[in-house]
Design a protein around this nucleic acid. Structure first.
Lengths: 194, 194
DNA sequence: TTTGCTTTTTACCATTTGGTAAATCCCTTC
DNA sequence: GAAGGGATTTACCAAATGGTAAAAAGCAAA
């Protein structure tokens, strides 16, 4: 058991709830550590999400496609964030989005089967994850709404001030897709800001 | 007890969970019926959200302000939707958004105090609301993301096809604010579509 | 009906953004 | 170091959008 690999997730969970060492040992048994390279597909659109990821290092992106077929990055998930396609994960239906590593990353993987086992073994665990997921959804909505009605330059400036660590680590084209502009426009915007 | 007024909320809740008549009576005791006029402010930005609204008739809007001071409509809530500022409601902190009637509306009001009482009396009720809230958040994210990377015409067309009943009942300026364009642009877009 | 107020439409022009294409930069591999 | 491939920048022009202002339409009260 590589406990060191799993330390980040306990640091995170304990921000929400105190977890005894014996419970931590139970949780550890269900966890899996995984390293992925930039561009690696962790979940393919159209398949059901059967895994919950916790980002220890790196950045994941959730990607869907617009009507025109252009990839649209919905969110970036960085260190100490959970990542899955929640509706697909909960209901077992095909995901409308893909999960892809936006840069080299280290993850903790929790399969749905094993999470359900945890719900059985640790009665508080479902409340805990539900709470975390809800906060995560609220955060996503808040960020997205803060972009509404702003022009591309303002969106970019908000992005680099709100999520500077992500801005520096993912490609320009990913940022452009996330902000809803072409990469040419974003490149021009960056030049004007300097 | 005006049970008739409360029927819509039970019709809705029973889509998620069977509720006995005796439980329904308990719930009814905590509910309050309220009619509001277009423009009426149900929650003022900066104040903590202490009420949960269920829309029986009409449309509510959640409004915040951009950096430039322009009002930005984040969402519309129509019939058979719950509406509150969840983070403020849960944590008791000031809301960053206002809730305003986008047209004349009839609501069922559930105060936080009374909801907490319901959680005590009906053990399943917290799970039920949590589940509903999560689905609501996922829905909001899905709609918002579907607009990302689309031009204003496409966003408007998606809006009128996804939410035709709302499009017909709220003002053009509200729709423009929701879609992140000026009302002049939206008026021009409507002309071009015809 | 008339009046006054609000909402919506239209017009004009400045600015922003998209689309295409080419040039440059950067990184990896040989 | 050289070559190749992808990423980013730049340029050019067309199209879309914003800002200001005025006209038209809709609506409610007198």
């Amino acid at each position: 058991m590589h406990y060191d690999n799993f330390k980040p997730i306990f640091d995170f969970l304990r921000l929400y709830k105190d977890i005894s060492e014996s419970d931590a040992a139970i949780i550890c048994q269900q966890l899996q550590f995984r390293k992925v390279n930039e561009g690696e597909v962790l979940l393919q659109e159209g398949k059901p999400a059967k895994e919950l990821f916790f980002v220890c290092k790196g950045i994941l992106k959730i990607v869907s496609f617009s009507d025109k077929g252009n990839p649209v990055i919905q969110f970036f998930l960085k260190e100490h964030r959970f990542c899955t396609i929640l509706k697909s994960f909960d209901d077992g239906i095909p995901a409308n989005e893909s999960i892809i590593a936006a840069c080299d990353a280290a993850l903790i993987v929790l399969s749905k089967d094993k999470l359900l086992q945890l719900y059985q073994k640790l009665p508080y665990f479902k409340d805990l994850t539900t709470n975390i997921f809800q906060q995560s959804l609220l955060e996503k909505i808040k960020v997205r709404n803060s972009y509404m009605g702003e022009d591309a330059t303002t969106r970019y400036q908000k992005f680099i001030s709100q999520q500077p660590d992500i801005a520096l680590r993912v490609s320009l084209s990913d940022v452009a897709s996330y902000l809803g502009v072409t990469q040419q426009s974003l490149s021009r915007i960056r030049k004007n800001i300097r």
